[in-house]
Design a protein around this nucleic acid. Structure first.
Lengths: 175, 175, 175, 175
DNA sequence: CATGAATGAGCGTTCATTCAT
DNA sequence: GATGAATGAACGCTCATTCAT
């Protein structure tokens, strides 16, 4: 999985399976002992990365009274994960738009983000997004987070500043 | 170009050039009379789509006193273009993340969006994004617009509603 | 023809017909007004070059008493042609080994060299090659001449010296 | 290699790699397991054939007092190799003029012929070619040998006679 | 289970040739 | 006769996948 992540980042999804196997230190044939097809590998990887991302975002999360504090906690975790794992993030992004990921995989991935979704839903109902649909609100929040990550990774010198400004925009947009 | 757009949407960027040629009603060889390579085709298409999108967004735009009105005009145009040309939008999205588009093409494309960028910059300096960098602000605006488009296309029944809500979020985020 | 000669020398026989047409200043289609196929062009060119070479070699040739003088006259002419027309020579060489030249063309080409063949035959019968077959003797003479040409063209500074030494070897070999 | 030799002789260097693979009894893809490119195959084959030829020519060669005997020994070996391996010889000839053989390959091939070159050089310095350059002398000797081979293969009935006459011409030319 | 050679379908691109204008 | 766009067969090469060892 790690090898695949690295290779996808540097070579894209069209990278030969042989390259991934080599990067992982196994023979090209062995790769197919663990993954039936290349697509299967991609789906498993997508799931693993997404799950890892969700777990990281929710780490240390506890339901509390102050929604803004909860939100900022998760936001920080998320940004932290992104800046600490830029490769995973890029691989995940590539996989997400690739057309190789089955609806089933996407659905499973959604489930691992259930708690995140719950928090978002809370924010939606308590703020100005209440008349937006659930999915729309979540997508908006997600896109603001992703954009912030992009800039934190792209411009690490000002990462902290971007993180803070990003959250402020986020909060203003939804509250 | 139209054929390529259609094929990219249904089959992705890895679609055979022969398929694109067939869709265009010409022989596989003829495709290379017009485009030196597949990559060249993709770059030209990207430019055309992006230019078309920018032109659509700015149609009927005139500098006025009320920034919100200007913004809403462009927003509406943009959403209109997206819902009227969902295929172009999807193809453009795929091309944009593909790694096939050269920096030169991206730069040229940026130029066609100069007026859009100017408007965004105005909004940034006159609102709460003034301490965000220019690029960051533009990316935020763009991502909100893209997310809104997604939902308008995905859920056409409520397109108008999404459009309006999207703009409100947008305006709240930046003002 | 001239264009084809130039292109063959620089690009080889696999050069596109379009390139030859361009070099000749006509459209790719026009080439096929004059030559039915690429192979046809090659055959006609081969014939023209070979004929030209033979004519050059025999220029000013007159039957006389001294065989050595006659031989040297032809030899000099031949070497002169080769050094003055290195491109023609190289093109001719490429065509000769190409498998594109039909037996018919080769036969016709032979006929244009009839006088040269006659002289060679005279030399054979009057020297030590008399017990060699006619074709063998001619091939030997030819190969010595070709080798000498190669070195005259390759090392133009010593062209004259190579020419003289080559002839001496030639004369020693056959007399 | 053998398959390639056979195919080159019958179809030329422009023969499809698939044909060579088929002739070798492997799939078209497998060919590229052994040779990175078609050009690479040609270069390796050239080297193998040239090395084989040199080895055959020098077989049983020992430095002795009589230069003529040494020369005739090598000459006989060489002619023998040529008549026993007409396909190899034709393939080698085609490869040699093809422009696909890199200077590096040619240089390596030269090294395998070092002993042959040494013998030729001895003959040059001890005979009438002493005022010819080293390369020129070698080329002359080579061309006489090649011409003789051609006729031995072309007219097998008189092969022995051609061989003997060829050597006599050769010896007369250089001594 | 690991290996890596073998497979062969598939793709981007080329180019001799045609033919409507 | 000249043009050059159109054609489509052909080719070199790649790579996901298989399978004997």
């Amino acid at each position: 999985m790690e090898a695949a992540t690295r290779v996808i980042v540097t070579q894209g999804l069209s990278a030969p399976t042989a390259t991934i196997a080599q990067e992982a230190g196994v023979s090209n044939g062995s790769l197919f002992t663990y993954f039936e097809t290349k697509t299967d590998l991609f789906n498993q990887l997508y799931l693993e990365l997404k799950t890892g991302m969700a777990a990281a975002a929710l780490e240390g999360f506890s339901v509390g009274s102050d929604l803004r504090k909860q939100a900022f906690h998760v936001w920080s975790n998320w940004m932290n994960w992104a800046t600490s794992n830029p490769e995973k993030r890029r691989a995940l992004a590539q996989l997400g738009v690739s057309g190789e990921i089955t609806p089933a995989t996407r659905a499973t991935a959604q489930k691992t983000m259930a708690n995140l979704a719950k928090l978002m839903e809370q924010m939606r109902t308590h703020g100005s997004l209440s008349n937006a649909s659930k999915g729309f609100a979540a997508a908006i929040m997600n896109s603001l987070a992703e954009t912030t990550m992009d800039f934190m990774i792209h411009d690490p010198a000002n990462a902290k500043k971007h993180c803070k400004i990003g959250f402020e925009i986020f909060w203003r947009a939804i509250s």
